[in-house]
């Protein structure tokens, strides 16, 4: 057994500027090519413009970002749909894929509401965030957590993070957290909108 019952990420949305240092630090650490992106940053925007008779404009525009990797869910739908048992929940609650068993069918990628599993074109198998298990076991932080210039990311024991920071992850554009019970705790941006009740839109669909 690992040192943790269940690992979770903590994300302070009010600090995130969408710079994606987390995404690239992850790629740098794991040598991931373009197209294989274990941590992604959706941008969610909304509001309206009104142009007055004198040409002057008023608006109520807002935007926020969410840094998102695999949430190593309590109900990992990727594990559920995997026909080969390659996808599994293991030590420290980390969900990972066994490349020896994976047949590259991508059912996990289709099922996951967070787009966490990413296809590896070179090996024709799935790949995903492994919570930097190699670093965690040596007492190090995951690469993304250590990278965030705004210190908006942290990690820890899920129960402890929730006790300290609450249990919020049902924020647009993410699904309601009852779907897969993600191990993700978000401190919301002041403009954050509840899942399913958003008035905005996903602004960067091709970047995630």
């Amino acid at each position: 057994m690992g040192a943790y019952k269940q690992l979770a990420f903590l994300f302070d949305q009010s600090k995130c500027t969408g710079c994606k240092a987390c995404q690239v630090a992850c790629k740098d650490k794991h040598d991931l090519p373009v197209g294989q992106t274990w941590r992604r940053v959706p941008e969610y925007s909304g509001g309206q413009w009104r142009i007055g008779v004198d040409g002057a404009v008023t608006h109520d525009i807002w935007t926020y970002y969410t840094s998102l990797s695999c949430n190593h869910c309590d109900d990992p739908i990727c594990v559920e749909v995997c026909p080969s048992t390659a996808m599994h929940k293991g030590e420290n609650g980390i969900v990972s894929v066994d490349p020896a068993l994976c047949i590259g069918c991508k059912y996990c990628a289709m099922a996951c509401p967070y787009d966490a599993p990413q296809f590896d074109e070179a090996t024709r198998t799935m790949s995903k965030c492994d919570f930097c298990a190699d670093r965690i076991t040596k007492g190090k932080r995951p690469a993304c957590v250590a990278a965030c210039p705004m210190c908006a990311l942290d990690f820890g024991e899920a129960e402890e993070l929730r006790a300290k920071y609450g249990d919020e992850a049902s924020l647009e554009p993410l699904p309601e957290q009852s779907v897969t019970r993600p191990n993700l705790v978000i401190l919301p941006h002041p403009k954050a909108q509840p899942s399913g009740h958003g008035t905005g839109h996903l602004a960067n669909p091709t970047e995630i």
Binding site: P188, P190, G198
Partner: peptide, 21 residues
């Protein structure tokens, strides 16, 4: 796959606008 961000966000959640420790 991006569409799922929208498609899956159908269920009701409760976003507490809490303070930020």
């Amino acid at each position: 796959s991006r569409r799922k961000f929208l498609a899956w966000s159908g269920a009701i959640g409760a976003a507490g606008m809490v303070g930020l420790p």
